[in-house]
Design a protein around this nucleic acid. Structure first.
Lengths: 153, 153
DNA sequence: CTCAGTGCAAACGATTTGCAAGCTA
DNA sequence: TAGCTTGCAAATCGTTTGCACTGAG
């Protein structure tokens, strides 16, 4: 569980004049241990479950710091909370979000990336820096909804 | 300013056992008068500017009702507020959102719609019912940011 | 020894809710 | 008249902030 990014994080912190604190390292470790899409609450819970103590304020402050430094991406996936995921070099993906239950699937689609570029250019948005989300309904929720419609409340 | 959808809204309200109140009609009118992407605050303000009185609670309750009945779509475009826009039959569009200033552009792309379908199907999401957002940085914000980088604070 | 970083609790912004009063059907 | 709707104010949810204290450099 020792990521190469950890050393990089530490040296970037130092470079930028930030301090290397136990809270920062605990959060870093947790963000990189999970494979994706966590919200602040979930992160806090799993950090505390390990007996470490990081306050909510510090958590939020450092998630923003990590986002600034390029170690995490911060998304609003349609729900009320932000989601955070660590950046693992290179391979970019986009998100498919269920509008009913919030479930998130990741996908990679070179074709859609090309179209994003074209659309951004056409509208004078930066064609290089972009993320995309598709909002739909997952099969489970669709079944539930269909059942509900057949026998309305 | 009298929309065909207005009569439809009234009769659907009646059908479903909801009452037709002045607040509902005022809100409906306002939502359809604007051409798109309004948040609750902006709607409230323009309703009140016309001398009509609708409370914030009623506004929210009825925006949700209109969404349930299929007259408006409710989006979370990355900012802290929901955005609402009326459904004008047929022509669907997607949104391009500036992650810096929140500016929203609409676009229509048959190609991207086809890809959305394919991606939804592949992940067992409903391929028919979906919306898509692209998040990028608009030219104005990009210029600002570049300027800032050249002369850092 | 100094000041960036922390924890706490209070502040915040957007939205939701409980309840008494009002108005549609 | 009955009970859905409303307005108000209070509650909620997630996130941010002020401030005194702490600990990294």
């Amino acid at each position: 569980m020792s990521f190469p990014e950890r050393e990089q994080y530490i040296s970037i912190l130092r470079d930028k004049g930030h301090r290397v604190t136990p809270e920062r390292l605990a959060l870093f470790r947790e963000v990189y241990a999970q494979h994706g899409h966590l919200d602040a609450e979930a992160l806090l819970e799993s950090i505390q479950k390990q007996g470490l103590k990081v306050s909510r304020a510090t958590l939020y402050r450092n998630l923003d710091l990590m986002a600034d430094l390029g170690f995490v991406r911060k998304y609003r996936l349609g729900t009320s909370r932000f989601h955070y995921e660590h950046v693992h070099d290179g391979q970019r993906h986009d998100h498919l979000v269920c509008t009913e239950c919030g479930r998130v699937a990741e996908f990679v689609s070179p074709g859609i990336v090309a179209m994003q570029r074209a659309i951004c250019s056409a509208h004078e948005f930066d064609p290089e820096e972009h993320t995309l989300q598709i909002h739909s309904v997952c099969n489970d929720c669709r079944k539930l909804r269909d059942a509900r419609r057949r026998a309305p409340s």
